[in-house]
């Protein structure tokens, strides 16, 4: 395959960036999108140019490190991560636009790399459980009803890649935050911090400068793990419940 790439190049956080056009040849349709970028970078290095910086780690769709906006879609045209997107979804001769996640809370570090530590701070505000340390407890000591386990697992699939924020016209982190809250709040292990978790994580989400939710639905469409839009409604419900409870006590 022969492709024309238009890639966002930005030397550092403070420098202005721009789209730069590269022609690239000999791309196999079995390559992943990241392997295609690797090929581009090899050529750039051979020519003595600066390679395109992009985030990646596992390359098997489970870590959430990768992620770029391809032709206006977070992670590109398929519902998967950029590392699991294959070049067979493009045609010979295509022009492909590659841009970093865009959000005020995700500043560009370099080229296609953005700083997503705002997500870490949301997790730090309550995305965990307090469990006694020591030997692992017996697995069946705390029964969990099947629907609750399914609900928790559906949300535990979130890999924190940030595609929801990148896709949202408001740069909102509601889908990410709802996945984390719903995952823990439905389980008995998460019950002790049920109220503080949702209140603190939502407050941190707001402090980090993410936008509000206007139910555009772009986040759920972009999510490689299929976290559904009603997850946000479930978080809103938790938040309202916690607000009522905390104000009463």
């Amino acid at each position: 395959m022969r492709l024309t790439l238009r890639v966002w190049r930005q030397p550092d956080a403070d420098a202005p960036g721009a789209m730069v056009t590269y022609g690239i040849d000999g791309i196999s349709e079995d390559m992943s999108f990241l392997e295609m970028l690797d090929t581009l970078n090899e050529e750039l290095i051979l020519k003595g140019d600066e390679p395109v910086a992009f985030d990646h780690d596992c390359r098997e769709g489970i870590c959430g490190a990768c992620g770029v906006v391809i032709n206006g879609d977070a992670h590109g045209p398929e519902r998967t991560t950029t590392c699991q997107l294959h070049m067979r979804h493009f045609n010979d001769g295509d022009t492909i636009d590659v841009e970093p996640w865009r959000a005020g809370a995700f500043p560009v570090v370099k080229d296609l790399v953005v700083d997503r530590s705002a997500f870490d701070r949301i997790i730090g505000a309550g995305g965990y459980i307090t469990a006694p340390t020591g030997a692992a407890p017996e697995a069946h000591a705390t029964p969990v009803p099947k629907p609750d386990a399914d609900f928790a697992f559906e949300h535990a699939e979130c890999i924190g890649c940030g595609a929801c924020v990148a896709a949202c016209p408001n740069g909102s982190a509601m889908l990410f935050t709802s996945a984390k809250i719903n995952h823990l709040n439905v389980l008995p292990q998460g019950a002790p911090e049920r109220e503080t978790r949702v209140l603190d994580m939502v407050a941190t989400m707001d402090e980090e400068g993410f936008g509000g939710c206007t139910l555009a639905g772009e986040c759920a469409t972009a999510c490689p793990k299929g976290i559904p839009l009603p997850s946000i409604a479930a978080m809103n419900k938790e938040w309202l419940r916690a607000t009522r409870k905390v104000s009463r006590s």
Partner: peptide
């Protein structure tokens, strides 16, 4: 707040969300 949360636009434009939402 929403507009401030998305300060730079994508170069590759496409319609986001439905007409009623926009």
């Amino acid at each position: 707040r929403d507009l401030a949360a998305r300060p730079s636009k994508y170069v590759h434009k496409r319609a986001r969300a439905g007409y009623a939402t926009r």
